[in-house]
Nucleic acid binder design. Structure first.
Lengths: 154, 154
DNA sequence: TATTGTTATACTCTATAACTATA
DNA sequence: TATAGTTATAGAGTATAACAATA
């Protein structure tokens, strides 16, 4: 049988069609998250804070005395993987470990004055990153997006 | 000086306050993406497809003859990291590598009948995952969310 | 007996350098 | 000279098992 169409079987793909993947929520959420985190990574580098360092410091900053266990539960970090993060932040003088007032097993994590100062600056930069990484969104759209995302995971 | 407030300095943190982090788009996007991907991971396990396998197979399925290089650019995968994925999918009989019609360096990736059949089923499951992972969203909200996410990364 | 924090370790994911074959 | 695909390897991120100290 002669081929009737002009397009041969093995014609090269000129432009990759990603329309199907773009219908998937998970695909879009992951791509968007990686895009924002990429900007975050660059702009917070001046503070020597990766996203995970920032989130850990942020929880300690806003919850002085929080325990490692609470941090793990809050940020979905496994306890063995938090140990190095905490040691690093303590070695940099950003946090202090103090005895827990009621539980002898636990340790309360507190920001130092240096840690508080760093986070106050870092949070300003983080707010700028928010805007820059979503510059095609209006403030109202940004707010809507946050609300919809929280309906997914909260 | 006697302490005048009822709350001691080292009072334990009862409930971790995450309100600050929850204002951040990047934090919400990452948490939501991980939540959806978690459901995806479980439900696509029956096809032995991880998210990355699914996305690679999906691009090949909808773009027969696509090259490795095009796949890498489309999915933000580095070429060395794609090699093993392609070899695995080929070993499973889901894709075939054919000579590229116009570029002797490149290889066209084509889904086999088995691969097409698998993806047709997997895409049905993926559609179900979409709904289940965002069950608190109306169809309209889900559509809005996809549109807003694409404004971030496209 | 259960939980907090920790060590050691394994596994996965991602990134870089360098090579070959072809354009 | 530049690009497609590949190899080897390094680094970062994530996971499980097991232990000491305390509840």
């Amino acid at each position: 049988m002669a081929r009737s169409k002009a397009t041969p079987v093995a014609s090269p793909v000129e432009q990759v069609d990603t329309r199907y993947l773009q219908t998937l929520l998970g695909y879009n959420a992951r791509r968007a998250a990686l895009s924002i985190i990429g900007v975050f990574l660059e702009r917070l580098a001046v503070y020597d804070l990766r996203p995970v360092d920032f989130s850990v410091m942020s929880v300690i900053h806003h919850n002085p005395g929080v325990t490692s266990r609470q941090l793990c539960a809050t940020l979905s970090i496994l306890p063995p993987n938090l140990v190095g993060l905490i040691q690093s932040l303590e070695a940099r003088g950003l946090i202090e470990r103090q005895p827990h007032p009621t539980d002898g097993r636990a340790v309360g994590l507190h920001p130092t004055a240096k840690g508080v100062s760093l986070m106050q600056q870092a949070e300003v930069t983080a707010a700028e990153v928010e805007i820059d990484a979503s510059s095609k969104l209006t403030p109202h759209q940004r707010q809507t997006l946050v609300q919809l995302l929280q309906k997914i995971y909260l």
